[in-house]
Amino acid sequence: MPEVMFAGPDGRLEGRYHHSSEPNAPLALVLHPHPLHGGTMNNRITYAMYRSFEKMGFSVMRYNSRGVGRSQGRYDGGIGEISDAAAALDWMQAVNPNAGALWIAGYSFGAFVGMQLLMRRPEVTGWISVAPPAAHYDFGFLAPCPCGGLMIAGGKDDLAPEPAIHKLVDKLNTQKNVQVDYRIFPEADHIFAKQADQVVDALEDHVSTVMARRSLALAAD
């Protein structure tokens, strides 16, 4: 897990990057929870998703947004953090110009930032959103959502209540060519303290299914 420092819009940003040994490997960018509530790239769920993509053969990065860890700058209410995510993606794409696919995975606040980035980068082919804060942020910008993905909610989550996430999923699933794989872990709260393995299993199941389906479609063409 080599440490990397790359240029962000408000100073240098700190990340951890794994480069796949596979030629033209797919890319994954993993985004951490809210920086004002202790969210960093070393968050347990963020780290688990990072390792999961690594295990599946991806080139993958997790990074600290502005003002977190050794990353320069100051928290910017989400707007600057979206620009940080775009800078991280730019860095990965420069290192991997022929990547076969691109996934974004975010947890909590990171899920909100990731979905904002999704709308700005048409090359994204899949996404993972764990406990997106649908009751606190307006996700109406996902209209239309460019592709389907995996959304995970905790049944005992008070910070990202499942009913609000369910409502968002239902809205996305009405859109043409969008299918959200929605999974609820009934005993999970916002920390997912005992559900990290379940998150990883769901991620690997969803990503492998989508990638296999895409490979079959390309072969058919």
Rank of each mutant, 00 (worst) to 15 (best):
G38E: 07
M92C: 09
H37C: 10
M56E: 09
D157C: 13
P23H: 00
R121I: 06
L102Y: 04
P144T: 09
S21P: 13
A85E: 04
S52Y: 14
H34R: 13
D181R: 13
I45F: 04
A101F: 10
V210A: 09
G110D: 05
H136D: 14
V30P: 14
K171S: 15
Y63L: 03
M5K: 02
G149K: 06
L203M: 07
A7I: 15
G57R: 05
R120C: 00
H190G: 11
D76R: 10
Q198Y: 01
L218V: 09
A86I: 05
G149M: 00
S71D: 09
V124I: 12
A134W: 05
R74C: 10
A143D: 15
I184N: 12
Q175V: 05
D181A: 03
A135C: 11
A160G: 08
K171M: 13
L102I: 08
L36T: 01
F109D: 11
F112V: 07
G67W: 00
M41A: 03
V210H: 10
F141L: 08
F109H: 02
T125A: 01
F58N: 06
P161M: 08
Q72V: 04
H34N: 14
L203W: 14
L118F: 02
N177Y: 09
H206T: 02
G69Y: 00
G15E: 03
A164P: 10
P161S: 11
A87L: 06
G73Q: 08
W103C: 07
S208C: 02
T46Q: 06
A202L: 14
W91K: 09
S129Q: 11
A48L: 01
G39F: 00
T40I: 08
G148F: 01
M211C: 07
L216F: 05
F58V: 08
A111L: 01
Y50T: 00
D201E: 05
R214A: 13
K176W: 08
A212M: 04
I165C: 06
W91R: 13
A143Q: 14
Q175K: 07
M119A: 05
L89S: 06
C145E: 14
A202K: 04
A87T: 09
G126H: 10
A111G: 05
H18S: 01
N43D: 15
G11Q: 07
A88F: 02
G149I: 06
G73V: 01
R51H: 14
A202W: 12
S20L: 01
P122R: 11
I104K: 02
G154N: 04
A86M: 14
A86E: 02
A7W: 05
L102A: 13
A135E: 14
A143H: 13
P186Y: 03
D205N: 13
R213N: 15
G114K: 03
A105L: 02
H19W: 12
A111S: 12
L168A: 04
L27M: 07
V4H: 02
D157V: 15
D10Q: 15
G78Y: 02
V68I: 08
I152G: 09
H34D: 12
H136L: 15
M41N: 04
